[in-house]
Design a protein around this nucleic acid. Structure first.
Length: 544
RNA sequence: GCGGGUGUAGCUCAGUGGUAGAGCAUCACGUUGCCAACGUGAUUGUCGAGAGUUCGAUCCUCUUCACCCGCUCCA
């Protein structure tokens, strides 16, 4: 389905507003920019920090660990850590990222397709005096695919398939050196594949000033592993019992092949992750608890129900050790109608991660899970050898916890909130004529500026002084803005674009009635409140 | 990575082989005073970057970077 004109122009307007008002800038812009990197401006940094703060408050510090919270299977605890971006390289080998992120890719010059080198298989086949290597993508049906491709290449009919003389079984393309005889999976001519090129999806760096190849380290591609490798530290240094969630907010880095769609797919991005450790017997209940809780969090923060979906992965997409994985997806305006982009993944990870860090990297395909071995029969990647099991001091049961992982993108959430907030309506000007109004309808909790304070008339000493006093009083608790320039209507509109939920105006009556007007962004409603109740009024409105 | 498009003031865009303009925005003054008001004036540009052709390039050529769209990829 094609992207609609309207959606595409909506995204353009949002991108333009972000630049114009200081939400987002392209990184290194004065040098021409850098693909896949974005900076937050004065309004953007407040918005993103508010989102992260709201998440941390709602998930960690504000969590009620004394009572069974709504829909939860039991009482549970939440805490947080902040681990480093660069960690021991072995962590990424045991987590599976090292293998997954080091693919060799080949491009087909004819079909313009790109393949993972290790996924292409083929057979040597000879006919009409020519010997070629016919390839296809590895699958159960690859033998018959190879046959039909070979017939087509040699222009033979199916009944003449005896004319094809095979000189090998199905083997990996990796083992083939004579590339000139290779027929690529979707090519009609020979020798159309480029030589394999390494795709380093993890950013490589070097630890130590003289570091050579032995000192290679990686910028983390996810924050989760910092939690797994600190699980024992957290348990040992605190009196937390399971079930326990450990949260972390931080930057991660992935060398995306194609950064696209504004900040949606960035190479440097920030994650808000929870690893929730629980007893294996309860993991299914906790999985569905977190899935539903995380979806409703976005709703309470102002994302409408219709623009958010929960997509459960099908059983055949899941690793066998996982009970489920669900993506929380948002209808971003840059996507075609009916398509959604991932905001957060909630995954049941079983005991895969903790066991991999204990025993050595497990083979995801093994069932039950076993350590992946190399050609010599030794562990492919050695684990830490440390015991990361949990002992329940009430039952004395010792077990490796199962993990539920709600992993949210802070930048993706910020982008979703920006898109969701963007709204155009009409408001009357002073002549009663309807004018287009652009307003960012952020939830008050995440709005970059909570309130703006204006004197109606700049030159009125009382108004100006009172407005400044209110401004300074509010500033002790909130990010607020003072403006005395231009006409009052223009000041309101400026704040509408910044998404400021409340504007407070001191006017000519204020001196006699000691009251000011508070104007609400979305409804345009104005009410008068006493000057000495402004701070508490704003506080109540923002905290709900 | 491939194909197509775009790149000119803070934003939206016009424009020309002779070193640039509009609207909006911003600022000042005056007037007004509760929803982008009006008047007067002012500020703003390595014309994405580099190289070439030319007496002279924002314009033509090549290279490069970034953004958008489609494919590809998506742990």
């Amino acid at each position: 389905m094609a992207n609609t004109e309207a959606d595409s122009s909506l995204m353009k307007k949002i991108v333009s507003l972000c630049k114009r008002r200081g939400f987002l800038f392209q990184s290194s812009e004065i040098y021409g920019g850098l693909n896949g990197f974005w900076d937050y401006g004065p309004l953007g940094v407040e918005l993103k920090r508010n989102i992260k703060r709201a998440w941390w408050q709602d998930m960690v510090t504000g969590h009620d660990d004394l009572n069974v919270v709504e829909n939860a299977p039991s009482v549970f605890s939440m805490t947080g850590i902040d681990s480093t971006i660069i960690m021991h390289p072995q962590i990424w080998k045991c987590s599976g990222h090292y293998d997954l992120f080091h693919d060799y890719m080949v491009d087909c010059k004819q079909s313009k397709r790109r393949y993972r080198h290790d996924q292409i298989v083929g057979r040597w086949v000879e006919a009409k005096g020519q010997k070629i290597f016919v390839t296809t993508l590895a699958s159960e049906a690859c033998e018959s695919e190879i046959e039909s491709k070979a017939l087509k290449f040699f222009k033979l009919r199916a009944k003449n398939k005896e004319d094809l003389v095979y000189s090998s079984e199905v083997i990996d393309l990796i083992s083939v050196e004579e590339t000139t005889s290779v027929l690529a999976p979707e090519a009609k001519a020979l020798d159309t594949l480029t030589s394999p090129r390494e795709f380093n999806l993890m950013f490589k760096t070097t630890v130590g000033a003289l570091g050579g190849e032995d000192d290679v380290a990686f910028l983390r591609p996810e924050t989760a592993q910092g939690i797994f490798v600190n699980f024992k530290n957290v348990i040992d240094s605190t009196r937390f019992r399971l079930p326990l969630g450990i949260a972390q907010i931080g930057k991660s880095f992935r060398n995306e092949i194609t950064p696209r769609n504004f900040t949606f797919r960035s190479r440097e991005f920030e994650q808000m992750e929870i690893e929730f450790f629980c007893h294996p017997d309860d993991s299914a209940k906790w999985y569905s608890y977190w899935r539903d809780r995380r979806l409703s969090w976005y709703h309470t923060m102002g994302i409408s129900e219709k623009s958010l979906i929960m997509r459960e992965h099908h059983a055949d997409e899941l690793a066998h050790y996982s009970i489920g994985t669900a993506d929380i997806e948002y209808a971003f305006p840059f996507l075609p109608e009916g398509e959604y982009g991932e905001l957060e993944g909630v995954a049941h990870r079983g005991d895969f991660d903790l066991r991999s860090h204990m025993e050595g990297k497990l083979d995801e395909k093994s069932n039950p899970l076993e350590v992946q071995l190399n050609e010599k029969g030794k562990p492919k990647y050695r684990g830490s050898g440390k015991d990361l099991q949990y002992r329940d001091d009430l039952t004395n049961e010792k077990y490796t916890p199962h993990v539920i992982e709600p992993s949210a993108g802070a930048d993706r959430a910020t982008l979703a909130f920006l898109c969701e907030a963007y709204y155009e309506d009409e408001a009357p000007d002073e002549n009663g004529k309807m004018q287009l109004r652009t307003v960012m309808r952020f939830h008050p909790r995440i709005a970059p500026i909570k309130a703006a304070v204006f004197p109606l008339v700049k030159k009125d000493e009382f108004q100006s002084k009172t407005a400044r006093d209110i401004y300074l009083a509010l500033k002790r608790e909130f990010n607020v803005f003072y403006d005395e320039t231009a006409a009052i209507g223009k000041r309101y509109r400026r704040q509408d674009e910044a998404g400021t939920p409340y504007c407070i105006t001191v006017d000519g009556d204020s001196v006699t009635d000691q009251s000011v007007t508070i104007r609400e962004r979305d409804s345009l409603e104005q009410i008068r409140i006493p000057i000495d109740s402004v701070v508490s009024e704003i506080r109540n409105r923002i905290l709900g």
